[in-house]
Write a protein that binds this DNA or RNA. Structure first.
Lengths: 335, 335
DNA sequence: CAGCTCTATCGAACCGGTTCGATTTAATCA
DNA sequence: TGATTAAATCGAACCGGTTCGATAGAGCTG
């Protein structure tokens, strides 16, 4: 590998001039610039990103930290961010915490060690120590999906209260009263908000919620399946199930199928968030979806803005909350 | 951030001794070691990974390059690799080329620039120049999924010929003769092998393949859908469709549903590779699946072996080909 | 006790860039 | 034309580690 000193020697200028020519060509005389250009071309010089990062104290990498890259929700956002970052000569490194807080923290630490230019972070869990840690970082960070009280950063997400409320209202309109709700982890903002949307809408309609009808699905497949089973074996079954996310809802569908319940004839089902092959799942699930492309775009622009703009770094944090969209399917019947 | 010089000053030893104590404690006297330990603890020293990588010419990162991290096939492999790497104090950075060769190359170049310890690479496309580039890298690389002629590296994958043959044989056994095949990109090894498995099995059974029954689905959703439509509008329709991967097969299912064909009553369907929610897709698709956990484990061990073992780096490349598994569903009927 | 070997530690160069004050060169003005 | 100023270039220190030959002291041998 050719180094900057090889180039300097060949162009017969100092190392610092080559460096200057690279970072600010306007401040180098045209003929020197040309000599340097030729030298660079002839030895095939490419600056070592590691050395640059060390010297600058900052790299051109952006860290993307989520709990599950396989989730299409995160996948779409990642793609948007990646495209935008690439256009601005930044490079996205993706890390997956598998939803484990300890691992998430280790990954953030690692990315900080890499002197990443910025972080797009979907926190999956946290304790006070972790919050302090995140607060102590002086790197641009845009949080998304999970709004965490105590993290004073830009936040990009959807109106989860509304998402829960919309589906609840839809089921009420169809005549359902015995509506069950499969929740997510109580420490997650999306989970609590969606539940709040459900509970308040029910209360506003004057419908009491049977306490056996609220079960914890942890946003995971196994817990969701188990939670659904608990709902289905009750003598007084719900007429509709609302899944707080795609995973628990589809786990519920699986449980229903295995026990021989038909959807929507026996039990209606609705969920928040799309999945990849929803169009071939029978019945087509009625859902509320987030505008992942828009979210990804906002995250990307906001993060790059803070990274590239000198004063962008000190702007006060801002929240961007998008309205989710209702997508009717045929998994909810009128009763 | 505390540097190694701060530690040296506090422990009243030289910088090089601190470095030695960190990398090879046995060669430092016990009392010096203790002084250094205390100093490290009191200033909270953590070595800068960037500076280490620059000085060593090698980092503790492993690059993971695939065309679509959202695909559960790659997701499982990523998880296995990540767990194993973490156990060996290595860190996986994931990059997604979105199936674009140019981007894939840029990502590999970037990872090499980061002086990654090794690469797990699922090539999605290539030209001669790219092959030469990969060949020129003297970093441990384990290729997987796509076997590329011209890349002399370890390879981990499944027997794709067998995968195609197994499903074809199954359909023949059920009495199908008019079997259609939706292929993947012809430059992909998995695609050509799976097709070969289909074609040869058909030939061996003495069944001629209608040339209109072989359509190109590019392993993508849009092309797969289009290809399926072309099959379904023919006056002489196939009685069974075999999708060369999950994406094209499910696109075909969608096309069938939209045109009002029932599966398997009107047309049978089988596919290679699982998807996340196959258990709630109706009908349950008959498929051949790869053992992603085993693949991931082999990739991880092989790569770490080459990285950590001094002589591992020079071992000749080896192929690991696993046998895929037949998973019956109810998407294929006897005729 | 001189001569030799080992062990522990050190100093300096190095990895490959960036940065900034100092210096040289060129252009502008009185 | 000499003084002044701006533009171009340079040198050296720096980022934060690693590495390796040199050195000093301890321990062993004859």
């Amino acid at each position: 590998m050719a180094t900057i000193r090889d180039v300097a020697k060949l162009a017969d200028v100092s190392v610092s001039t080559v460096s200057l020519a690279l970072s600010n060509p306007a401040r180098v005389s045209p003929k020197t610039l040309e000599k340097i250009r030729q030298a660079i071309a002839s030895v095939g010089f490419v600056a070592d990103p590691l050395a640059q990062s060390l010297a600058r104290g900052r790299s051109r990498m952006i860290g993307f930290v989520v709990g599950n890259v396989g989730n299409p929700f995160f996948g779409d956002i990642r793609r948007e961010l990646e495209n935008y970052a690439l256009d601005h000569e930044h490079f996205v490194v993706v890390t997956d915490s598998s939803g484990k807080t300890a691992r998430e923290r280790a990954m953030v630490e690692h990315l900080i060690g890499l002197k990443t230019a910025g972080l797009a972070l979907a926190p999956s869990g946290y304790d006070q120590e972790y919050l302090d840690f995140v607060a102590s970082l002086n790197v641009p960070i845009v949080c998304f999906d999970q709004k965490v009280a105590g993290i004073e950063r830009d936040f990009v997400g959807s109106d989860n209260y509304l998402a829960g409320a919309m589906l609840t209202e839809h089921l009420l309109q169809l005549g359902h009263r015995r509506i069950a709700f499969i929740t997510g982890p109580s420490h997650m903002h999306t989970a609590t908000e969606r539940y709040r949307g459900f509970a308040e809408t029910m209360a506003n309609a004057g419908v009491e919620v049977n306490s056996n009808f609220v079960v914890d699905g942890q946003f995971t497949r196994t817990a969701g399946y188990e939670a659904a089973m608990r709902l289905l074996i009750q003598p007084e079954r719900p007429t509709a199930i609302l899944g707080a996310n795609n995973t628990v809802a589809l786990s519920a569908l699986q449980a229903m199928q295995e026990l021989g319940f038909r959807c929507p004839e026996d039990i209606s089902l609705a969920m928040i968030d799309n999945v990849q092959w929803s169009s071939v799942i029978t019945p087509r699930i009625t859902m509320v979806v987030q505008d992942t492309l828009a979210l990804g775009g906002i995250i990307a622009r906001r993060l790059m803005h803070r990274i590239t703009n000198p004063q962008g770094a000190v702007e006060p944090p801002q929240d961007f909350v998008l309205t989710p969209k209702f997508v009717p399917g045929n998994s909810c019947r009128r009763i």
